[in-house]
Design a protein around this nucleic acid. Sequence first.
DNA 1: GCCAACGTTGGC
DNA 2: GCCAACGTTGGC
Length: 152
Amino acid sequence: MNYWLMKTEPDECSINDIAKAGEQGVLWDGVRNYQARNFMREMTLGDQVLIYHSSCKTIGIAGIAEVCAAAFPDPMQFDSNSPYFDAKASPEKPRWDAIRLRFVAKFSNVISLEALKKVNPLAGNPLVKKGNRLSVIPFSAEEFTAVKALND
DNA sequence: GCCAACGTTGGC
DNA sequence: GCCAACGTTGGC
């Protein structure tokens, strides 16, 4: 079992949207960063994922989801009508991956970035570093537990 | 809306 | 392989 954090703009896909998707979960596509993609390829079924709302009014971790489909080629890279289209990708040589995420829990309150910066095990985590742009971040069990504890 | 930080691209 | 230019991210 691995732990991760994934960023999303809640206008695009919020923790509520994931909850509404039910058992089959949501398609997590559009990741166009190699480091983030490589992390997605390491994900296995049942991995726990903290859902982080960015670029919005209430920034922070909103809940937990789990991986319900491991990495597969992101269909949007082949769709010339999609903003995620990549002319350099082909079905024979896909470049980008997607996963699926299923709802696990919504926190009673969004755990704010300000609060996260005060969590000891998170010191040094890219999430709380200025200028960080990584949208998929691996978490240790200790980091995950410390975040989850803030919801209790 | 601003702007610092960052990743990617492309000329050389 | 370097690095300037550019586009994007993301907090404020």
